[in-house]
C-alpha cells in the first residue's frame, strides 16, 4: 500500500548540465520512445537518486503499513477473516521484499535502507502514522487505502525503470485481491447489525482525512516535477490521482449508505471534477515530520524488531562473501 506525491525532493537547478549531454539526450530519447531503463544502463545521477528515494520509501511503507493491520490478525472475527488478513499482511511484507530488491539494483543495500528508516532519515507513507482503532478501521484501510495505492501504483508501473515496473505489476495484482477483501469486509459491516454499521461509519470518519492526504499535497503547493515526469519517474500529478480515486470510490461509498465527512464533497458536472474541502496540509506536514499519532510507536516497533533480530542475521553471515548489487 502506498501513495506517492510528497516524496520528491526539489531538484537543484542545473543538475542535468553536469551530465554528459550526449548520453543524457539518448537516455531521454529512449524513455520518450517507451523503453525501459535497466540497472546496468547509463542513467543521470539525479534519476538514480530520485528513484532510490521513491522505491525505498515505497518499500518502507509496505513494511510499516503491515503494522496497523498486523495487530488485528490476532483479533480477526472468524476463520475466513483471520486467514484472509494473515495472507494480506504477508503480501505487504512480500511487497517490501520485492521493492527493497528493486531499489538495491540502483546501488543501495537493504541494510542501509532499513537503517535509514529506523533512524528516521527516510520517510514512509504518512497514512500509517494513524491508528487502526477498531476492526472496522482495518476494513476501511484494506478497501480504500489499497484502492488508492492501486491507482498510484498502476500509474507508476508504466514508468521508465524496469525493475520497479516489474515489481509493481506483481504488486498490483495482489493489491487487487486486497481491495476485494477490503470491500467485502466493509460491505458485511455496512449491511450488518446497527453496531457493525456504526463501527464502519466511525472508521470512515477517522480515515477520510488521511485518505484525502494519501496522494500528497495539492498540485498548487507541491514541488515542481517536470523533469521527473519527463523521465517517467513520476507518472501522474497528485490532484489527478486524487480525482481518479474520488471518481471511482465515492459513488461506491455512498451506495453503501455511508456518510463521507465532507459537506462540500460533490462532483461538478460542468468541469467533471470533484469539489471538496481542501485537506489540512499543515497537519499533513506535521505528521510527515514526525508529530502524528503513531509515528513514534511505528518506528519504535520497527527498531525493536531490528534489534531483536540482529543475532539471527549475524548468524547467517558468511564473512567470505562480499555484497554484490543485484541486477534485477
Amino acid at each position: 500500500m502506498y501513495g506517492g506525491g510528497y516524496i520528491f525532493e526539489e531538484s537543484k537547478n542545473g543538475h542535468s548540465e553536469e551530465e554528459d549531454q550526449i548520453k543524457l539526450q539518448k537516455f531521454e530519447e529512449r524513455i520518450a520512445a517507451g523503453e525501459k531503463i535497466e540497472p546496468s544502463d547509463w542513467m543521470p545521477a539525479e534519476y538514480r537518486k530520485q528513484l532510490i528515494r521513491m522505491i525505498e520509501q515505497h518499500a518502507h511503507s509496505e513494511i510499516i503499513g503491515a503494522l496497523p493491520e498486523g495487530t488485528w490478525i490476532t483479533r480477526a472475527p472468524g476463520f475466513r477473516r483471520k486467514l484472509a488478513l494473515m495472507a494480506k499482511v504477508q503480501d505487504e511484507v512480500g511487497h517490501a521484499q520485492l521493492l527493497y530488491s528493486a531499489a538495491e539494483t540502483l546501488g543501495k543495500p537493504r541494510e542501509q535502507m532499513i537503517n535509514d528508516l529506523i533512524t528516521g532519515k527516510s520517510k514512509y507513507s504518512n497514512v500509517f502514522n494513524y491508528p487502526a482503532v477498531t476492526w472496522a478501521d482495518t476494513a476501511v484501510i484494506a478497501w480504500l487505502i489499497d484502492a488508492g495505492a492501486i491507482i498510484n501504483q498502476v500509474a507508476n508501473s508504466k514508468g521508465s525503470y524496469g525493475p520497479y515496473c516489474r515489481a509493481l505489476e506483481r504488486i498490483c495484482l495482489e493489491e487487487s485481491f486486497h481491495l476485494k477483501y477490503g470491500h467485502d469486509n466493509v460491505v458485511f459491516l455496512a449491511t450488518g447489525t446497527s453496531q457493525q454499521r456504526q463501527m464502519v461509519q466511525d472508521a470512515l470518519i477517522r480515515w477520510w482525512p488521511p485518505i484525502m492526504h494519501f496522494f500528497g499535497p495539492s498540485d498548487k503547493i507541491s514541488v515542481h516535477t517536470e523533469t521527473l515526469m519527463r523521465w517517467k519517474v513520476k507518472m501522474a500529478s497528485n490532484d489527478d490521482m486524487r480525482q481518479k480515486f474520488l471518481d471511482m470510490y465515492v459513488p461506491k461509498i455512498w451506495e453503501l449508505g455511508l456518510t463521507i465527512p465532507d459537506p462540500k464533497l460533490k462532483k461538478n458536472n460542468e468541469t467533471g471534477k470533484w469539489e471538496y474541502t481542501e485537506p489540512d496540509w499543515e497537519e499533513f506536514k506535521r505528521v510527515i515530520n514526525g508529530d502524528g499519532p503513531c509515528n513514534k510507536e511505528r518506528l519504535a516497533v520497527r527498531r525493536r524488531a531490528e534489534e531483536k533480530g540482529e543475532w539471527v542475521r549475524n548468524a547467517l553471515l558468511r564473512p567470505s562473501e562480499k555484497y554484490t548489487v543485484p541486477l534485477s
Binding site: 503491515a66 503494522l67 490476532t74 486467514l83 494473515m86 499482511v89 504477508q90 511484507v93 524488531a305
Partner: peptide
C-alpha cells in the same frame, strides 16, 4: 495464532513471509 504474531516482525523479510505461510497452514 501465536506464530502469526510474528507477522512483519521477523528478523529477515524472506523468513517473515515463510513463517506467515506456515502459520496460515496451521490455521
Amino acid at each position: 495464532h501465536r506464530n502469526s504474531e510474528w507477522t512483519a516482525l521477523v528478523p529477515i523479510l524472506e523468513e517473515d513471509i515463510a513463517f506467515s505461510s506456515m502459520a496460515q497452514d496451521k490455521i
